[in-house]
Amino acid sequence: MVEAIIHMRDLVKQYKMGDNVVTALDHVTFTVEKGDFVAIVGPSGSGKSTLMNMIGCLDKPDQGEYILEGHTVNTLKDVQLAKIRNENIGFIFQNFNLLGRLTAVENVELPLIYRGMKAKERRECALRSLEQVGIVDRANHYPNQLSGGQQQRVAIARALAGTPPILLADEPTGALDSKTSQEIMDVLIQLNNEDHTIILITHDRDVAQKAKRMIMISDGRLTETEGTQHESVHIH
């Protein structure tokens, strides 16, 4: 039995939209194991962003239990959530979300700054993770001097810098052309082969096919589809 890194049980999240109550997550239960590569696929409004925020510890569930690496996240305070985000999650966003005033290497250093790492050590770590995604030669470029693919590589390097157990990618190829998308997916597959756990959120089935598991989300409910490389039984 492989160690479960994420375990969610009966998660419910509701939003008030005017007078209506929208159920974004409807009793979601699922497990991600260490070294997994899970794609969560769903159309917009299906609740996948809410699920991602929940996994990323940006949001708290109304009901249910969420255990991440042994921490019961749903009971933690904001300060502790920030620490979890810093140490356990590496975010990769659709539109890269790099800070324009900082160079590539400084962007990669950001999570390490909040961890309180010393400047020299920080720089070494950041350069190492830029090396890992093959863009160390652009370390001192500003984001606006880089192409979309290069920016996403820097963003992946930033997610990797703190060596978090989980990489959480929200539509990482959504803003890229198909050739660059392929490159970025190759980087993610490569990282998964190096034993990084990856959760990929997308609306694009072709992208999702590249993952080991594919989970469909619709109206806040999950269904695991057949035919992916990795079978799973932890689905409701």
Partner: peptide, 16 residues
């Protein structure tokens, strides 16, 4: 605002 969101998502605390 966006920058603040990014910083928070990668682990900045309120205090930071």
């Amino acid at each position: 605002t966006k920058e603040i969101g990014i910083r928070k998502s990668i682990g900045a605390r309120r205090k930071d």
